[in-house]
Design a protein around this nucleic acid. Structure first.
Length: 447
RNA sequence: UCCUCGGUAGCUCAAUCGGCAGAGCAUCCGGCUGUUAACCGGAAUGUUGUUGGUUCGAGUCCAACCCGGGGAGCCA
């Protein structure tokens, strides 16, 4: 039997006899010809079975194969521009077929299906090429995140998932029973990250986070993955520089490593090719002015039929505002210096203008929303205690956090990047549920 | 929590004014050497989300509930 090779590497075996093992993705028969599209996890390859080239038994096996049956085929690799597949352009001239597991009738045909049906069959849907492509891009994004951080002096120190109290005290948490004591699934590792920088300088945590919000939109999951870098001796301005280099690297890495996947997804690459430092930076004041000018003109929110709603200075942006602002730029855009009153207690107020704080969100283009949120953290213990009290939070659980400012406080900053929103943006998907193998959504956790 | 749209064959959908439950695809059988969601011929396919109500008669109208899509708020 010739050596088993991956479909992705077929281009290196033209003219050679090789074997491919995988699953039957699609089949069309035309008398003495069978076109078997086989996927092996690395790609999809058309395998052509001509009656004259195989034994009668093998030809019959080919006829009996049902969609998703597992099999091995052997044959000669040939460059063929007509051949469909991923990457495509190569096909296998089959000489031998071995059926392994004949599949029962497969529920997901290569036709249209509704979201509800596909989500109920998520364990099978991930075999479909668009889902396969998105999840492979996700894997590359995760690798790019780690590679960039690891090679820029960041130490990966993961933070706990079980936490004793609300980290930010705002959003809804999943409560669990911790041996009789209430505990919560983490919605951020940030406070622990801040402890870790005093030991390691630059750190990141990377793991799942949990939000029990009753959110049912294309941008929300109950369980999502977030990478949170945190840096000692770092100002807001330096943080933005880190973010734009980091995000640009992730996008360029996908362009470089995921060509076939992005083609399956039919992604318009020109949007991604533009993503390079520097990103535009706009002050909250400026963003409010832009929104209100648009509202006064009656501009519509891009992609929706509704006009841009006006906003009062001091209010937080709603989704329509973010979508409008992001659409004014062809790269991700930083919006910085949000009002102190609407942001988390630990964000550093601006020195000569304490009503705004040294915070920054990064809005992705094309309506993908906020992909990072970060800030310079408050570094003075007295001011921090006052902020905790102003937010009506109990001081006792935060004593350790205040300690960080008592023992060698430094200016420091950090941000969190949502993996699923980043994947959705890079892939051009319209819903984050397709960016993770088994999404946990409001009222939906099966399979 | 609120707003909005939807639930009919395995899947995607249709069904006029309240009047016999219909297509395409998938499946099975037959045909074809270049198919790209192939095509051609044939076969089989139903608790119309649930419960109750109106009516001679309900997929269609009414009520409640269940499930799902999109959005708001909140957020990454």
């Amino acid at each position: 039997m010739p050596p088993v090779v991956t479909i992705r590497s077929l281009k290196d075996h033209i003219g050679e006899e090789v074997a491919v093992q995988g699953w039957l993705y699609n089949k069309t028969e035309k008398g003495k010809l069978q076109f078997l599209q086989i996927r092996d996890g690395t790609g999809v390859c058309q395998c052509v079975v001509f009656k004259g080239n195989v034994t009668p038994d093998d030809f019959e096996i080919g006829q009996s194969l049902t969609q998703e049956s597992s099999l091995m085929v052997a044959g000669i690799v040939r460059a063929e521009p007509r051949a469909p597949g991923v990457p495509g352009g190569f096909e296998l001239d089959v000489r031998y077929i071995e059926a392994m597991g004949i599949s029962d009738p497969y529920p997901i045909s290569p036709k249209e299906h509704g979201v509800e049906f596909l989500m109920e069959n998520r364990h099978l849907w991930i075999r479909s090429s668009r889902q396969w492509a998105a999840l492979r891009v996700r894997a590359v994004i995760v690798r790019a995140i780690r590679d960039w951080l690891d090679s820029h002096g960041f130490v990966n120190i993961d933070t706990p998932i079980i936490t004793p109290a609300a980290a930010e005290g705002t959003t809804t948490l999943f409560e669990i029973d911790y041996h009789g004591e209430p505990a919560y699934l983490a919605q951020t590792g940030q406070l622990y990250n801040e402890a870790n920088i005093f030991a390691f300088g630059q750190v990141y945590c990377f793991g799942p986070t949990f939000r029990a919000e009753k959110s049912k939109t294309r941008r929300h999951l109950q369980e999502f993955w977030m990478v949170e870098p945190e840096v000692a001796f770092c100002t807001l301005e330096q943080l933005m520089e880190i973010e734009e280099h980091f995000v640009s690297y992730i996008v360029q890495r996908c362009l470089n490593d995921c060509g076939p996947e992005l083609r399956v997804l039919e992604r318009d690459l020109t949007h991604l090719q533009r993503v390079a430092p520097p990103f535009p930076r706009i002050h909250y004041d400026e963003a409010v002015a832009m929104i209100n000018a648009a509202a006064a003109r009656g501009d519509l929110v891009p992609g929706y039929d509704d006009p841009v709603p006006p906003i009062e200075w001091g209010g937080d942006f709603g989704s329509p505002h973010e979508t409008y602002i992001a659409a004014q730029f062809d790269k991700p855009v930083f919006v910085h210096h949000y009002p102190t009153a609407i942001k988390a207690f630990y964000m550093e107020p601006e020195g000569d203008r304490p009503e705004v704080c040294r915070s920054v969100d990064l809005l992705a283009p094309e309506g993908y929303g906020e992909i990072t949120g970060g800030s310079e953290r408050m570094s003075d213990p007295g001011k921090l205690i006052a902020a905790i009290e102003r937010h009506k939070l109990p001081i006792e659980p935060y004593e350790w956090y205040v300690d960080l400012r008592r023992y060698g406080s430094v200016v420091h900053s950090g941000f969190g990047l949502g993996v699923e929103r980043t994947v959705a943006w890079v892939c051009g998907l319209d819903h984050v549920r397709e960016t993770i193998a088994f999404p946990r959504m409001l009222n939906t956790m099966r399979p």
